[in-house]
Simulated scan of single mutants.
Amino acid sequence: MLKTLAAACLTISLSFAAAFAAKSGIGDLDRGYTRLLISECKLRGLLRSQCAYVLATTFHETGGLMTPVRETFAATDRQAIARLDAAWAKGKLPWVSSPYWRQGWFGRGYVQLTHYYNYRLASIKLGVDLVSDPAEALAPDTAAKILVIGSKDGWFTGKKLSDYINLRGADFLGARRVINGTDCASKIAAHAVAYDASLEQTGYGVAEATPKIAAR
């Protein structure tokens, strides 16, 4: 009974959050490169609810810009490195064991591709040399492929979109594990609800099952 009540409260709270999100521009399918991302999702066969989560992730990771960005939202590579060095010197990156950014492997794209091994993996998967030219991860088309294919196939954490979002339902909370554990999971789940509603209005995936938000 308590679990049922908790799940109901969660669904209601996410609904309110989704309504607030819509007023903040979340769910706007014409912002930045949103339409490009939708096209990539369709090309890769993503369900509407999966596409919604991709867009929600993008909104969160890009600060609502819906364009590829550098880590720290720097305007240049030099500025990104300087900002990360400053944060490192002040002890603000306790989870980082070594300054990966100094060789240019800082986050780039819609989903912050980070570290040499991830750039190398994406290079192999896409047939694009991101090791010699990591800045290519900022190109809208390349960044879209990294985000969409990476999320679908589980490049980032070993977890795939389909592990949480499929025709049986949409666990928008758990899906954060595809990208980054449970960091800001509730916030991004609310974004996904708003994007799913917008995508439904466009006719994306009209034949698929109606997604349900599962609590975790």
Rank of each mutant, 00 (worst) to 15 (best):
K212I: 12
I179W: 15
K160A: 07
A74M: 04
S186N: 05
D171H: 06
C41Q: 04
F20Q: 13
D30F: 00
A7I: 07
G205E: 06
A89D: 14
A21K: 14
G109H: 14
A7L: 00
A143K: 09
D141I: 05
D28H: 08
F16V: 15
K212R: 15
V96I: 15
C184I: 07
T157K: 06
E208S: 12
P134N: 10
S198H: 02
R108N: 08
L2I: 11
L5D: 02
L5K: 13
N118V: 06
S15R: 08
L5T: 06
Y100D: 00
H191R: 14
A75T: 07
L2R: 09
L121T: 08
G150D: 03
A209N: 12
T34G: 05
R108P: 02
A175V: 02
A189P: 07
D163E: 10
A122Y: 01
I213T: 07
K3Q: 06
T67G: 05
S13Y: 10
K125A: 15
K125H: 12
I165P: 08
V131M: 08
Y164H: 09
G104W: 13
L37W: 08
V131F: 11
K187L: 07
N180V: 01
R176Q: 01
T11F: 07
L161F: 05
S24A: 15
A75R: 11
F73K: 02
Y100K: 12
R83Q: 07
I81A: 00
C41W: 09
D153E: 13
T34S: 04
S198I: 05
L113T: 05
D85F: 03
K187D: 00
L37R: 01
T210S: 06
H191N: 10
S24T: 06
K145R: 15
Q79E: 02
C184Q: 11
A17G: 14
P99Y: 03
K187W: 01
T62S: 06
G154T: 13
L14D: 00
A214Q: 12
Y204D: 03
G64C: 13
Q50M: 13
A135N: 08
L167D: 08
S198A: 15
D141R: 14
A143S: 12
L130G: 05
L46P: 00
V206T: 13
F16I: 09
